[in-house]
């Protein structure tokens, strides 16, 4: 899930243990734990894997299998801001691919890449449920519809420092 990366705190095993513990009363606590860890730290640290495995009585391989299966979970910190550009068919019908290609080229990025100054990570997303106002994007927690090159650049420049 999105979230301003600038709000993320540095990895802290004690805090991670606390987060894991808070979720142990749930049925099927794995995904809630992973989301909570990512919300707190901006990514799911490899150091968290053995901790989760122990708490849930699973092997490390099983936990690793889960964290690597889902597109949402990052394995390293992202840039201070995360831009998710929609690549679903509806957005494609309104020129999202061309828009993305130019935007990425302009910033010297590939999909999933982070700018050299660590300011912006650009990720692909497949539908934000904003298909009647395509092309769409999510910049940190902010949704943007009917994007064009101008509004996209403006939005990104507004959050950048």
């Amino acid at each position: 899930m999105g979230g301003t990366m600038s709000g993320a705190s540095n990895w802290n095993a004690e805090r991670a243990a606390q987060i894991i513990n808070e979720h142990l009363g749930l049925e099927g606590p794995m995904l809630p734990i992973l989301h909570a860890l990512q919300d707190e730290f901006g990514y799911v640290s490899a150091d968290a894997v053995p901790m989760i495995a122990k708490a849930l009585n699973l092997s490390r391989a099983e936990v690793h299998g889960v964290t690597s299966f889902y597109h949402d979970f990052r394995h390293e910190p992202a840039g201070r801001h995360v831009l998710k550009l929609c690549r679903g068919e509806s957005c494609q019908s309104m020129g999202s691919e061309e828009l993305a290609r130019k935007f990425l080229a302009g910033r010297g990025l590939e999909w999933g890449g982070t700018t050299a100054d660590g300011d912006l990570t650009v990720e692909a997303i497949y539908c934000l449920g904003l298909c009647a106002c395509s092309p769409a994007a999510m910049l940190d927690d902010e949704l943007i519809g009917r994007l064009d090159a101008e509004t996209l650049a403006e939005a990104v420049d507004t959050v950048s420092i």
């Binding site: 995904l31 299998g65 889960v66 299966f69 979970f73």
Partner: peptide, 26 residues
């Protein structure tokens, strides 16, 4: 209770969804 998926389209398939809810790969 509401649970949040994690960006896997296949987890819309009902049995993958159930595995995901249980905390496994979808």
């Amino acid at each position: 209770e509401m649970r949040t998926g994690a960006g896997a389209y296949v987890c819309g398939e009902e049995t993958a969804l159930l595995d995901s809810l249980e905390g496994k790969r979808g």
